[in-house]
Amino acid sequence: MGLLNVTGIVVKIDLLILIGFSVLSWTIIMFKFFQIYKANADSERFMDFFWKSKRFDAIASQVDRFNSSPLTMLFNEGYGELGKFMEGRGKADTSILSTDLGGIENVSRALRRATNSEITRLEKYTTFLATTGSTSPFIGLFGTVWGIMTAFEGIGKTGSASLAVVAPGIAEALIATAIGLVAAIPAVMAYNHFQHKIRVLIKDMDSFSTEFLNIVQRNVAGK
């Protein structure tokens, strides 16, 4: 810690930026960890409940129990669009065929929109992790280069190049790279982990959309 006291102002600012990056990236890591963990858990429970239930209205009444799952958002959007379609179908019986096709497409579009919305929500803030992972080492390196420049300037002034004179300056400078790596490594690891989890959730949402549309089409065609 004594190293921090003797570093120059540029290196200190550099270190503050890196510490800020680290604090924010860990904030996002924790937030995303709990968000994705809860989304996965609620999605599994919701799918169980979905397949066990016989009616959409029964599911719609219980959907708030699985609030963290992105699939509930899809279900709400699809079910809402389906309700609008059913209302429209009751008013105009003369154009059943054309209205049926248009209604299913509307539900499909609503599901696609909800999927995109959920992907955006799940991926929110993860770009900051990528930014931290890619830029922190360079910011740290900048601090190191600056620190070594200052150290060599000091060596030039003292006129001595012994290890006792050179080593402290380089040690001060290298702490910036060390903190840059400390900030970057967890950020990169977390980013890759979250990307994998989000891809799995996107696949689940695609599967659920397909299943929902199948069910809707079967029921509409059957009537």
Partner: peptide, 9 residues
Amino acid sequence: GLGVSFIIS
């Protein structure tokens, strides 16, 4: 939950 995470971090 972001605020809580920030405090913890």
